[in-house]
Amino acid sequence: MTSMSAMSELHIVTEDQITPERTRRGKLMIRGGLALLIATALAQWADQAGLVDLGRTSWRPTLYAFCLFATLLCWAQVVLHGEQGKRTLFVLPAALFVVALVVFPLIFGLGIAMSDWNLASPDGRKFNGLDNLWQALEDPFYLNALWNMVLYTAAILVEYVIAFGLALLLNAEIRARKFFRVAFLLPLMLSPVAVSWMIGKSMFEPRFGPMARLARTLGWDNPSFFGSPEIARAMMMIMDAWTYIPFMMIMLLAGLQAIPKELHEAAEVDGASPWRRFWEVTFPLMLPVSITAILIRIIFKLKLADIVINITSGGPGGATDTVTSFIFREYRDRSNVGYGTMLAFIYLVLIVIAMTALMKLTARWSRPQT
């Protein structure tokens, strides 16, 4: 029993057993791994920029150096902190994995964004600093796409009102309620590409589409749902709303079902009208769910591209362009990798700033009401 106890204690390192020599060794492991990683990354960057010729066509050495640094960092935690370091190992590998999959690609993408790199050019990639940034800030088509995103995002308020109304309807005691819940969810089950072809390319086809025929019957001689900038933009909003209103509706319906019925019954006993019960009981209690649904819907809206690309390709004259569809065409049609990446970075920064500000503004309403 004594030998078994002694064997188990070999893996336990207390704070008093961490000697100065052990601490120095742990710090040396971290610094050595980090120095190797930085040196490898700088050498490969110099090779990519044409300052030196190392004959490397990929970033594998930097990846291997990062793996070695991650291993040494995890090992050093146990060397430096003993048992506390072992607990850190439950979290540290996951954090390093996130760094490898998120931070490194962002840094690499930033390098591309600061390059003049067109795949159709025989000159290859050249570093041009912030030239792509200044070009983007003066690009009227990109600024128009940003303004379109503001309009598309503002339409979410209308979508929210419709979704709330449908959620209230499906929460009421109506006939075939379960059938309508499934039926209203069908658009959400369809791919945006399928929606664009089924509705935009078929139903709203200007010559033989059923909606065009109906428009002619009602007196519109030459129906063109995507020929006018205003109408085309409105059609994009309608088709995207038709796809995602069910998502907001199902979230709001779940929130309505979580409200205790006793609250409505007590308000009814007090003589409150249906409108007053909604405005003073239902709506305040639904604020946290509403804010969550709207924020998630904004995230989906900021990625809007499929419907625009498949139906109008941003036309007419960029009137329906989203930032994502514009960047897609910058890559596909113009092969402009450097400029397209800079546009994506600008959009990412704007999204982070806007969403952070929006979440701070809505923080007081996001808390559960009591």
Rank of each mutant, 00 (worst) to 15 (best):
L304Y: 07
G26H: 08
I199F: 12
T57K: 13
G165H: 03
V158W: 09
L190Y: 05
F328G: 05
I259A: 02
L343F: 04
A305G: 13
M29E: 03
A267F: 06
V193P: 07
V308D: 02
M249I: 02
K303E: 11
L343Y: 00
L151R: 15
T153Q: 03
L137W: 03
L72A: 10
L343E: 04
L54R: 12
Y142P: 01
G32Y: 04
F184P: 03
F204D: 09
W147P: 05
Q369E: 10
G314Y: 07
V78H: 11
R297G: 02
P140E: 07
L89E: 11
Q17K: 13
I245P: 02
I353M: 13
V182M: 09
T243P: 09
E83M: 14
T88H: 14
Y244S: 05
I38H: 08
V289H: 06
R332S: 15
L252S: 03
F69P: 01
R177N: 03
I156T: 08
Y331F: 15
Q17H: 12
A354E: 02
P274M: 11
R334K: 14
I107K: 06
F97K: 08
W59C: 07
L256G: 00
L151G: 08
M203R: 06
W242K: 04
G82M: 03
L304V: 03
T312H: 07
Q17T: 09
T292E: 10
Y160R: 07
E159I: 03
M203L: 15
S5W: 12
I38L: 15
H81M: 11
L302D: 02
M249T: 00
T71D: 09
R276Q: 13
H264K: 09
K301S: 12
L28V: 09
F164S: 00
Q77I: 00
W220Y: 13
V281T: 06
C74A: 12
T23N: 11
V102K: 15
V269L: 14
F184W: 09
S8P: 02
G317D: 10
V193W: 13
I162A: 00
M198E: 09
P140Y: 05
T324S: 15
V91L: 14
S202M: 08
E9Q: 14
E265A: 05
A163K: 01
S8R: 15
T312K: 08
I353T: 07
F208N: 11
F164E: 05
A39V: 15
L73F: 13
V337T: 14
V52W: 09
N148K: 09
V323W: 04
R276M: 13
N132M: 13
F66Q: 02
P20N: 10
L295A: 15
T341D: 03
A215V: 05
R181M: 06
P105R: 00
G200M: 01
